[in-house]
Nucleic acid binder design. Structure first.
Lengths: 110, 110
DNA sequence: TTTGTATATTGCAATATTACGATTAATTAT
DNA sequence: ATAATTAATCGTAATATTGCAATATACAAA
């Protein structure tokens, strides 16, 4: 059916899954890495940097923007995208809480 | 086209995306949470715990197993799944490295 | 105004994912 | 042996995702 039954899960579970899903494509990872690397805004070099067509990059940017992880300003003829540090902190904190879980190992039978 | 062009990206980018993708569904988040919570093995209570059909759960378990994040032993008539702590540590370390990046803010123009 | 440049949107084809009923396989209990 | 139980697999329908060509939009420069 292709549709996820979000009503079966808690808000936290859905939120974590949404974050992970947004990070679940190498192009979006590459975009974020590039943004961190240049520590500045994107002004069009992404299409050259990553070898995908312009509409494809634009679509991936949109998804990251929808999650709130990046923000963009119009700057003349080009758009200026950068990491929203506040959102990034919130999102990574949430993910880290989940990732830092450990099995105590007491009932570990495998 | 629905196919991801993995050859355009580095191994690290593809690996990170694969991990995130595996975590990108609330059912799989819920499965992992349950495994951590009971700190033991699953012996069939997952289908009741999560409200999805048995084949669906089985499919999600398979994906987590493929990533190496959980492992399963046959234990009589039921299967015993649990977190593979070593793999979990490796995977979360990799993700954390990525997540802990920060923008220095120097070129932050948005 | 026209031309050029940069990004977004639309429309579409190919593939992937999600979910589940039906079935199968493997084991345990009777 | 037969029945019951548990989990995996198969087959299939519905929806989502990925990618790009074509087009639209918005602005700048000439």
């Amino acid at each position: 059916m292709g549709i996820t039954k979000t009503d079966k899960f808690t808000d936290e579970q859905n939120k974590l899954a949404n974050i992970a899903k947004a990070l679940g494509h190498p192009a979006r990872i590459a975009i974020l890495m590039h943004l961190f690397k240049i520590d500045s805004c994107i002004c069009g070099d992404l299409v050259n940097e990553i070898g995908l067509a312009q509409p494809t990059i634009s679509q991936h940017l949109k998804e990251l923007k929808n999650l709130g992880i990046i923000k963009g300003n119009i700057s003349g003829t080009s758009i200026c995208y950068c990491i929203d540090q506040d959102e990034w902190t919130q999102i990574t904190t949430l993910l880290n809480q989940f990732l830092s879980q450990k099995t105590e190992g007491a009932g570990n039978c495998c």
